[in-house]
Design a protein around this nucleic acid. Structure first.
Lengths: 307, 307
DNA sequence: ACTGTTCGATCGATAAAACCGATGACCTTG
DNA sequence: CAAGGTCATCGGTTTTATCGATCGAACAGT
């Protein structure tokens, strides 16, 4: 039987990959630098390969194989942690810490409603939140630094399981004096010729809104003077200032994002366009059944939030 | 940070689950019984849970949670082994041992051609073979006791990646004095009223043949007097004895399975039915690129084997 | 009921390893 | 060239894994 790397060695490896600094990596692992150094040397000796390029000056440089090993170490360590966590999950369903990631176009509008409902339904749940873009959240989910994502599905996330929870329609928001403000509803085709304001690149809502207008995402598509908003709230302010029009998710509208701005809201003509909100977690996550139960509650909360 | 189970402890757990006997499990791990016993007790203590039901007489009985932990331990250990194996795979592409499973309706007809070709292309490859049904092979793939499967895809195998390599058409085989033997080609509908002989339950070819005839798989479907064949060779002998007709994969026919039997072969009318041969391996398998290269060779071999 | 056997748990001793603190060698920077 | 920072190495200590021997309970055959 081949000699296996120890979990500790893998921790050292991952910590070093994240900080690229022996001392800080050691600190993250709560050991001394000498211990971490020796542990990594032992790992290289056991695997009979070189993980670090030690001829590369004083910077920590990984060999190509070393980088692959880091990735595999991550999944291996996640699998090990899943063993421990399965015990906790079985002992106390819907208890303990849950690290959830949420995108900025959902969080501020849904969480204020969701949190009280969850606290009522699952009093023992400790929910840690992180707001970030889909790509960053997905990376953290894979690195086992988040347990659950609340975002627009489908999303590129290999090895993950998704559960759709709600359909969130897009609504056109315009200044009251806009020439389209008199229309009952607005056709998607009409949008593509307007000055369409969008969130900056990286927000999935941006790409979805562009898709609704029949435009392809790309550098600066749909931007006015190269200017894009950093949040839906600033986006609304820009529209209120007459800089253009935009698409808002019904979820944000229902949460009152346009209140006091005087903006006019109009539905999209036709079958309408929407995004699908959903939960995403790692396959084989020990608490997957918890996540599904949470998703069931989320379905209710979304129905209420979307009136 | 939570205390993680050690790889050794997981090995003990898995070995015990497989043998349900402390002494033999210890032997499988090359340790003494006392070591394994202490290791498992330490694991239960660390996880603060009970894995074994020790009030259940002298038999080894796992708790429900214990069984789940065994499953998770398997995946965790596989992930750990993947780290080590990635090193070997990088050091020597297409070298070292490869444990391949193959179904009985492919192996005897393709391997005689495949093996010499592989030996020529990859001289350093050490290929271990196991012939079994799809279900058993899939179980062994998941348990990390096989690396690669050669079978009919798609197959139920979660967490696996598949690569189709060839299309293998079905051919009707009949006795020369059969009333359908005079036809140029035979329609699938005509088959369903014939005395159709098939492999016994568990062979995927059986279900595929039934599907071709528009029949659903079920208890005894398509059996004559409750009698089913255990291999394609015996099946051919039964047809030659006038007990009925059957469907054979072109692969077996091309390998000469009906030679000397006097059986008549007729194509199926219409678009024709076929099975897809393919390779399957675990996602994240360190040698996945090797498997794809092997699959590319397999495409050639199959083309030749199917003439 | 008695008895020998089998099986898993426990104990004491020993060898291996993980870890720490201090130190050394080397590179980089001012 | 000197100073600071960074990783590797070394000696000593603590912890852990393992073994061999033994114990006690459950079971089977008489």
């Amino acid at each position: 039987m081949t000699l296996l790397p120890s979990p500790q060695q893998l921790r050292y490896l991952i910590a070093l990959a994240e900080s690229r600094h022996f001392g800080r990596a050691a600190q993250a692992c709560s050991v001394t630098q000498s211990t971490l150094s020796a542990g990594l040397l032992a790992l290289e000796r056991q695997l009979d390969t070189s993980i670090l390029d030690r001829d590369a000056g004083r910077h920590v440089v990984f060999t190509p194989l070393g980088l692959e090993l880091v990735e595999r170490a991550r999944t291996a360590l996640s699998a090990l942690e899943a063993v421990s966590e399965a015990v906790l999950a079985a002992r106390e369903p819907m208890g303990g810490p849950l690290r959830m990631g949420v995108i900025p176009t959902i969080g501020p509008f849904l969480l204020p409603r969701l949190m009280p409902a969850l606290r009522r339904a699952f009093p023992r749940l400790k929910l840690y939140l992180r707001e970030d873009t889909t790509a960053n959240l997905a990376a953290r989910l894979n690195a086992n630094r988040l347990d659950l994502l609340l975002l627009a599905v489908p999303c590129e996330c290999p090895g993950a399981e998704a559960m759709p929870v709600a359909r969130d329609a897009f609504v056109v928001a315009l200044p009251p004096d806009h020439r389209l403000a008199g229309e009952e509803q607005i056709s998607p085709a009409a949008l593509s010729t307007e000055r369409l304001l969008l969130l900056e690149d990286g927000h999935c809502l941006r790409d979805q809104a562009l898709a609704v207008c029949g435009l392809l995402a790309g550098d600066g598509t749909g931007e006015q003077d190269g200017f894009a908003a950093t949040s839906l709230h600033t986006l609304v302010q820009m529209v209120a200032n007459g800089l253009g029009i935009t698409l808002l998710p019904r979820l944000a509208v229902a949460a009152g994002i346009v209140e006091g701005t005087g903006l006019v809201l109009r539905p999209l003509a036709g079958a309408g366009a929407w995004r699908t909100l959903g939960l995403v977690w790692r396959q084989n996550a020990p608490r997957a059944s918890d996540y599904r139960a949470l998703g069931a509650h989320l379905v209710d909360t979304c129905r209420e939030a979307l009136q």
